[in-house]
């Protein structure tokens, strides 16, 4: 299955046409659309294929789907160190508006993995989606920031990557390949989120107690595995779980 059956239309939208989006619609006018909120940093690159597969599955099921990149990430304008959570939430609301306007759908759902889940949650608090699907969302900002710092320090010292360990100064202001601004650091330092009971929560890291819509994935996705930093995240199970959840919503 690829572009022969499904045509995704790329384009720029949002403030000054600064946001990149990729829209896919089924043959018949859909009543439901899904906004896929990407993670940030290397998680975005690692999960690109997974998001694409998810989008194709949803379109095959008759839904309109939009993937997009936040300002300073992916194909969108801006530099990585200009990315802030506040701007990401605004961009998500912009993307939701764009998706509603283009498809005229009655229902709008959102999916987000990792920080994409956190951003979807914060956008949902401002303008609720009709349903929310999250995968390994980052709920504890300070813990995530500490984890990024630790992995980054470990990466700098990794002599399988570098001929000699790199200094903290050489890696300053970055997390695992991506420069970040002070505002993003500050936002993570105070970010503590909770998941609404109705949201589907896919948990690959055995982080959440099993209850309600919390579903364990059998295989860990390995987001924080430094040895797999440049290996794509793949999970047929995740796609199947989302598909099954969609059936309960329709």
């Amino acid at each position: 299955m690829s572009g022969e059956l499904l045509k995704e239309i790329p384009g720029y939208f949002g403030p000054q046409g600064s946001l990149f989006g990729l829209m896919a619609e089924p043959a018949y006018p859909p009543s439901t659309a899904v906004l896929l909120c990407p993670p940030l940093g290397q998680d975005l690159i690692r999960s690109h294929r997974l998001y694409r597969q998810l989008a194709h599955m949803l379109v095959r099921r008759g839904l309109a789907v939009m993937r997009f990149d936040y300002y300073g990430s992916g194909d969108s304008f801006g530099d990585a160190d200009q990315t802030t959570l506040a701007r990401c939430v605004e961009d998500t609301l912009n993307a939701a508006g764009e998706l509603r306007q283009r498809t005229r759908c009655r229902r709008l759902l959102a999916f987000g993995a990792r920080l994409g889940g956190s951003i979807a949650l914060q956008a949902h608090a401002r303008q609720p989606f009709d349903a929310l699907m999250l995968c390994d969302p980052i709920l504890d900002g300070p813990a995530h920031r500490a984890q990024l710092e630790a992995l980054h320090a470990e990466m700098l010292a990794d002599t399988r990557r570098f001929v000699r360990p790199r200094t903290a100064a050489e890696g300053a202001g970055q997390w695992l390949g991506f420069p970040h601004g002070e505002q993003l650091e500050d936002e993570l330092a105070v970010m503590l989120l909770s998941v609404p009971p109705a949201a589907l929560l896919l948990d690959s890291a055995d982080t959440f107690p099993r209850a309600g819509n919390i579903v364990a994935l059998d295989e860990p996705l390995g987001w924080d595995d430094l040895d797999r930093l440049e290996v794509a995240i793949q999970s047929h199970e995740l796609i199947a779980r989302v598909q099954r959840h969609m059936e309960t919503l329709q």
Binding site: S2, G3, E4, K7, E8, I9, P10, G11, Y12, D75
Partner: peptide, 17 residues
């Protein structure tokens, strides 16, 4: 300036100019 495009002999390629 940036232009997102779909192109190619089968209209199958995605790129940004």
């Amino acid at each position: 300036t940036g232009l997102a495009c779909r192109f190619g002999r089968h209209d199958h390629l995605i790129g940004v100019l």
